[in-house]
Each structure stands twice: as C-alpha cells, then as structure tokens.
Amino acid sequence: MTKPSLAVETLSICSGCEIAILDLHDALPGVLDAIDLKYIQVLMDFREPPKEGVTVGFVSGAVRNEEQVELLHKMRERSAVLVAFGACAAFGGIPGLANLHTKEEILKEVYIDTKSTVNPDGVIPHKVVPPMLPELHPLSDYVKVDYVLPGCPPPPKLIAELVTCLLEGREFKLEPKTVCDECPLTKEEKNVTHFYRWGTKRIDPERCVLEQGFQCMGPATQSGCEARCPTALAPCRGCFGPTEAVDDQAAKMIGAIGSITTKDFKESSPDQTAKEIPDIVGTYLRFTFATSTFKKAINMGTAKPKEAART
C-alpha cells in the first residue's frame, strides 16, 4: 500500500503555521514515516502541489490576491481532503483586519504615506505582481473546506491529532467548548468594575484574567489549545475563533462583558466601559473579522468574491 501523501500550500500568511508543523519535534520523524510529504515550501524546493494529487492538502493563510485564488483552486482539485490550516485560512486571521480599509487606502498607506517610504512618483506596484483583491477572504469563500484546524498557529498536539485521525479514517472534531472550560484559573466574582491594558497592572496568577479586568476572549473562543495563553497569564486573543454555535465573536464578548461587569453604574458607567475598551474590532475580532457579521467596514463597495479563471 502506498503511503498517504501530504501537501502544504502557503497563501497570505506569516508562515508561522508551517513552522508549527516543524514544531512537532520528536513526533515529526514518526509522522514522516507514515506520510509522504510531497510539497511544503518551507522544507522543499517545489513550485506547486504534485499533478497526480495528494491525499491531504493543508492550506495556510487567507486569500488576498488573484494568484492565491488560483493556487487555492489548484490545491482543492489536487487534494482528496482539504484542511484550512490556521486562523488565517479558517477565518481570515489578523490580515483580515485589513478589511476595515479599502484596497486603495491600503496601497496608498503602504507605498506612499508611510514615513520610511521614498516614492516621489507615487508608483503603486501593478506589473508582474498579482492584482490584489478588493477584500481578504477565508478559504471557505471560494472552495469546500473539509476540516478546519484553527489557531495562530495550531498547537502541535492538535496537528498530530488531526493527522492521526486522517490516517485512521476517523472524524476530526473539536469539542464544542470554550477556552474558559479548559482554563485552570479560578473564576469567582462577576463584578468587574474597570478594564485595563495588559501590562499596566499586576496580575494575580491564580485568578481569572478577565475578572481582573483584562480583555480575555476565553468566553467567546473555541477550546482545543488547553488555554495556553491564560495559563501563562496572557489574556486569550481568540485565535481559535468562535464555537460553532456562535456567529460573531465580538457579539459574544460584548454579551459576556455585559454580564460580568458591575451593575452599579456609579462605580463604572456603560460609557466608561466603552472608553476602557478602545478598539472593539481589533480586540474582539482580531482573528475573525473577515468572517464576522459584517466581514468588512460598510460603504466599501459590495464586490462578491471573484471567481478565478479555472483551466
């Protein structure tokens, strides 16, 4: 019997997800014994996934330009099972926050307005480079995604679990629980008065960081990471995205904030709370803006995802 094969495609991303695969460390040789790694740009010098196709295709990164639409379709055609690998592929990730601005604004900021840029003619690259799409899209806007492995990056333990599940022909599914369910910190009072930026106040290492007034996304985030951030006393940023019952992480978080804050408006008024949480979208939709309710700021044109020319 031939070994199952794996291809990893990299779209609009920082490549951290590929490094997470290498982070399997001691488990990696075992995985490589069981799987034939056909294509992964951080390790091998191939330009595209093998024509004969692969059993499993991991795609990391979101879709930001027309070339990536083509690459994504190619991966879909050539992989029997397609996995959206990492937060960007699954929800748009941090690059998804660019949907707060139009393509024109972004290009102008990057190539003309930044202080360190010298570009007297105001030239915006348009030759050779693939044209940028009006908005950033997660994979599911273009192709059918069989499995989603969220995380920024996905924890090696879950990668190993997913690969094992696929090898054994089992269904891979994250339990529909939140990070709070897994978090070992003590949760007691629901009477938060003020919110603070992380690092501006001493943290009690035993107590829930959200109840101490830090913006922890635990209540609105899918579990699976074993609460790796809150355990290290860093508030959860929500990289696993919402649980399947939730559409919009921000809505869920706003609901949670309403419940856990003080009911005494003399201690802290609603407006005061709104001031203490200055960037709702950047905080609550850090990884999922491109799949949230509005997906992008309004009045930016209503272009549908563009179908790439398929051969």
């Binding site: 707060l100 921000a250 706003i254 609901g255 904030i257 309403g258 419940s259 804050t261 009911k263 408006f265 609603p270 407006d271 709370t273 709104a274 949480i277 960037d279 709702i280 979208v281 509005f294 700021a297 309004i298 009045n299 930016m300």
Partner: peptide, 21 residues
C-alpha cells in the same frame, strides 16, 4: 439586573457600529 447588562452592551455595540462605518 437585565437592563443594566443591556445598557453596557449597547454602549459597546455602538462602538462596534462606529468601527463598521
């Protein structure tokens, strides 16, 4: 306390709407 919770949520939702233009 239901209406107190709502008041705070509305204040935050307004910020969300502002960010969405």
């Amino acid at each position: 306390t239901g209406n107190y919770q709502t008041a705070r949520r509305v204040a935050l939702l307004k910020e969300y709407l502002k960010a969405m233009n």
